[in-house]
Simulated scan of single mutants.
Amino acid sequence: MTSSKDDYGRRNYFEDSGYFEAADDDTKLSEPEDRLGAEDGRSPQWHSGLSFGLLILRLVLGGTLGVHGLQKVFGLFDGPGIGDFSQILGDQGYTSQTTLLSWLGGVTEIAGGALLVLGLFTPAAAAALLAVTANAVYLKHRAGFFLGDGNGFEYHLVLAGLALALLFTGPGGISVDTNTPWRRRPLPFGIVGLVLAAGAVVAVTLLFRR
Rank of each mutant, 00 (worst) to 15 (best):
L70D: 03
L166V: 04
G112C: 11
F52C: 07
L50N: 10
A111M: 12
F146R: 08
L118K: 01
G79W: 04
I56W: 06
D7Y: 02
A23Y: 03
L120E: 08
F74H: 01
P186V: 13
F14D: 02
G37A: 08
A126F: 00
Q71V: 02
I56F: 09
P188I: 14
G144T: 11
L55E: 01
I174K: 04
P80R: 09
V201L: 09
T133M: 14
V67Q: 06
I82Y: 00
V192A: 14
A131K: 03
A200N: 07
L164N: 00
S51R: 01
D149E: 15
F14H: 00
R42H: 11
P186T: 11
Q87W: 00
V202H: 05
F189V: 07
G93I: 12
G81Q: 06
A160E: 02
E39R: 11
A125P: 03
I110N: 03
T180Y: 05
P32I: 06
G49W: 02
L76V: 10
G113Y: 03
A128K: 00
F145E: 09
G172M: 05
Q45D: 12
W103F: 15
D91N: 12
D34Q: 12
A127Q: 08
P32L: 04
A163E: 06
G161F: 09
N179M: 10
E154P: 10
L54I: 08
V73R: 01
W46F: 11
D6V: 15
Y19A: 11
Y155D: 02
L194R: 04
Q92C: 01
P123L: 07
F145T: 07
P181C: 07
G152V: 08
F145L: 15
F52H: 08
G172H: 03
P123V: 07
E154W: 13
F189N: 03
R10F: 10
L196H: 02
G152M: 09
L187C: 07
A136L: 10
G62C: 04
R11G: 12
R185G: 01
G119Q: 06
M1H: 13
F77P: 00
E109C: 10
L115Y: 05
F153P: 01
A131F: 04
V73M: 10
L147T: 15
P188T: 15
P188N: 13
G106C: 07
I174Y: 07
G63D: 08
L104K: 04
I56G: 06
D7R: 12
F20P: 00
I191K: 06
F14Q: 01
F20H: 14
F168W: 10
G49K: 00
I110H: 04
T169N: 03
G144L: 10
V204I: 15
Q92L: 13
G173S: 07
R42F: 08
A160P: 00
L50R: 10
Q45L: 08
L89N: 01
T108Y: 03
V201P: 01
H47K: 01
D24W: 00
L196S: 05
G173N: 04
V204H: 04
Y13R: 06
D16K: 10
A197I: 04
H156M: 12
N12M: 11
V202Y: 11
F121W: 14
